[in-house]
């Protein structure tokens, strides 16, 4: 009896993760106040981390929380507090351009499902040995790893240079 109850708890928590992801996303794009958008984004990111954990990778889930919520959301919070102007927050009323996401994503989804027909699922979500990620980053994926380091350095230097206040002396 306890066995079915524990599975129900698992499915219930998975449903809550889905609500976090999609609910947070919808709040993030349709709310008038920018602060609500920000917290919708945070909850969506937390939900996506939960989905990564369900796909069998605790490492990517924790990295998602650390990098996105720890760095990107903090930077966005700084950006919001530095550029706050309550007149131009808010969302434009939907007009004919709202058809673009719908049509585009339906086309993408249709072609994906068509391409998935007939392919059989090789593996299910299991926890692979994640210490291999460290090895692969230094052996086979060394070039993308180094390029991403250079990219991050250049991006940070560029962002600081753009936003720098030049104090003139004299």
């Amino acid at each position: 009896m306890f066995d079915t109850v524990i599975h129900d708890v698992y499915y219930l928590s998975f449903a809550m993760i889905l609500v976090l992801v999609l609910g947070g996303g919808i709040i993030a794009v349709t709310s008038k106040s920018l602060i609500y958008c920000f917290f919708g984004l945070v909850s969506s990111l937390l939900g996506v981390a939960g989905l990564y954990y369900n796909l069998g990778s605790p490492l990517v889930a924790v990295m998602q929380i650390m990098i996105y919520i720890g760095a990107v959301c903090v930077a966005i919070a700084f950006g919001i507090s530095l550029t706050r102007k309550t007149e131009d927050e808010g969302v434009k009323p939907p007009d004919i351009k709202a058809a673009i996401p719908v049509v585009l994503v339906t086309a993408m989804l249709g072609s994906t499902l068509k391409g998935l027909e007939g392919r059989h699922i090789v593996a299910s979500a299991h926890k692979a040995d994640e210490s291999l990620i460290g090895w692969m980053l230094l052996k086979e994926y060394l070039l993308p790893f180094e390029i991403i380091s250079i990219l991050l350095t250049v991006a940070v230097i560029g962002a600081v240079t753009i936003a720098l206040i030049n104090r003139r002396i004299g």
């Binding site: 917290f39 605790p58 490492l59 924790v62 929380i65 650390m66 919520i69 720890g70």
Partner: peptide, 25 residues
């Protein structure tokens, strides 16, 4: 017993500050 227990605690320690930000806003 989590394989990445340490990273999880550090990652979740950040949400305290987000709660403070929420209270402030």
């Amino acid at each position: 017993e989590l394989n990445i227990g340490l990273l999880l605690i550090i990652a979740l320690g950040l949400l305290n500050t987000l709660g403070i930000l929420l209270a402030g806003w």
